[in-house]
Write a protein that binds this DNA or RNA. Structure first.
Length: 414
RNA sequence: GUGAGUGUAGCUCAACGGGUAGAGCACUGGACUGUGGCUCCAGGUGUUGGGGGUUCGAGCCCCCUCACUCACCCCA
């Protein structure tokens, strides 16, 4: 019987795992500098949490969630995204009573039942961050700047920062109506998908990839022209702060977000070096969600980074060092093997990575293995060394070797 | 959910228009009785993803199925 990982789920191990660890480490360092603290929420929540926040008519909720009944018949769902659980945690634990802003980051697996393709999986990992309690655009700018620094620290170049504002509950209906007016006289020329979009989410027509639709939407109303006074001021202030902080952005009025809870600022970081799924990070403001979850009115903003997409970029962009053993202990004969094992453990106690040879292998094959592991040193122990209580060391990079007393070996490696 | 492409050794891939499978890498041992990288020699595995059909004969053709890949929808 042969088993495979489930469709759209993958195993991650050496050497890729070191890239993953690097990304997580950089995220933790950078986010901490901005005052974000790690938060770990369960990966399963009540189904309602996602339905209410993401939106009942979104694709995620309608057809992509891993939803089950537990043994007591509760409806539970493997989280398809990270924001809703954090908001639930924030409200449930009354974190709004703590000084604002409260800033959190998290990382872990998300689940969506989709057809896999390049950069898209059924289990995928995100690193996200959420900031609660600040409505000013200043924090929007800080978050974008934090993302810029994160990518910079990873050495990723050529990323595109796109920002937009989709308004608030006051101005968005006006814009939606203007769009409907605009497309209602052109609907016959739209692609079949956009004809559907016209009814359930006309904003989506704006990022259709069909040529005919691209042409038809020339001169369509721009969301930024329909923002109310407050939204407009928020957006303009954000843009000037981004300039101040040297975040290289592009305003993309056609950018649409897939989740219903977004308000005002939305943004996306994309790369040209990925496939069709080109977003490496995305997020925005969600000023109503905390209140919807039963908390006090609390503005908030957050984003999520797609781990697989970042690691894909890093794999092709630079060569990464993978850890190698410092010492390989090759032994001949049982007494030597036992002595080697003792020495190995003593060195390991000092935090040194030590590998040992195993029974049945010739010295030659042990050395070959040490070489293939790229071990820095080989220690050789046989009957002669046992008798003299000295072992031989060999440095594989230049072939130099020498002798050293058993008792001094612990100081030899520092 | 829709569409297209691909499944041959552990990995990367060969095998003219159907004649019952091969190379490189990797692995192990030896040449070099206790010294790696280079070279040479030797060693092994395939139910050709699975099932059915056509045929004297199928890795190759047909059907079904599974898996993977890419794209659409949608999205990190």
């Amino acid at each position: 019987m042969k088993y495979n990982a489930l469709k759209g789920m993958q195993d991650i191990f050496s050497p890729d795992i070191y890239i993953w660890q690097k990304v997580e480490e950089v995220a933790k360092d950078v986010f901490s500098a901005y005052g974000f603290q790690e938060l770990r929420a369960p990966i399963i929540e009540s189904t309602d949490i996602f339905v209410r926040s993401i939106g009942e008519t979104t694709d995620i909720v309608e057809k992509e969630m891993y939803t089950f009944s537990d043994k007591a018949g509760r409806h539970i769902t493997l989280r398809p995204e990270g924001t809703a659980p954090v908001v639930r945690c924030y409200v449930e634990n009354h974190l709004y009573n703590l000084p604002s802003p409260q800033k959190f980051f998290y990382s872990g697996p998300m689940f969506r039942y989709e057809r896999p393709q390049a950069g898209r999986f059924r289990q995928f990992f995100q690193i996200g961050a959420e900031a609660f309690g600040v409505g000013e655009p200043k924090i929007d700018a800080e978050i974008l700047s934090m993302l810029r620094l994160f990518f910079e620290r990873l050495g990723l170049k050529g990323l595109n920062f796109e920002v937009n504002s989709i308004g608030c509950e006051k101005c968005r209906p006006d814009y939606r109506n203007a769009l409907l007016d605009f497309f209602s006289v052109r609907i016959d020329g739209l692609c079949p998908d956009c004809k559907r979009r016209f009814d359930y989410n006309p904003l989506r027509i704006l990022d259709c990839k069909v040529d005919a639709c691209i042409k038809l939407r020339e001169g369509s109303p721009r969301v930024t022209d329909f923002l109310c006074g407050e939204c407009k001021e928020h957006f303009n202030t954000l843009l000037s702060l981004l300039k101040l902080l040297n975040v290289p952005y592009v305003v993309n009025p056609d950018m649409v977000r897939g989740l219903d809870y977004y308000t005002r600022t939305t943004f996306e970081v994309t790369s040209k070096d990925l496939g069709a799924q080109n977003a490496v990070a995305a997020g925005g403001r969600y000023d109503r969600l905390v209140e919807d979850f039963g908390g006090p009115p609390t503005p908030a903003i957050g984003f999520a980074i797609g781990m697989e997409r970042i690691t894909t970029l890093l794999k092709s962009s630079s060569n990464h060092k993978i850890p190698v053993p410092k010492v390989f202990i090759a032994t001949i004969g049982t007494p030597a093997e036992e002595e080697g094992l003792v020495i190995a453990d003593r060195l390991r106690d000092k935090g040194i990575w030590v590998e040992v040879g195993y029974a049945g292998n010739s010295l030659k094959s042990q050395l070959r293995r040490a070489d293939r592991l790229s071990s820095a040193y080989v220690l050789i122990i046989g009957d002669d060394e046992i008798n003299s209580e000295k072992l031989k060391w060999k440095k594989l990079s230049d072939g130099s070797q020498g002798e050293i007393a058993f008792t001094e070996v612990y100081d030899f490696f520092k």
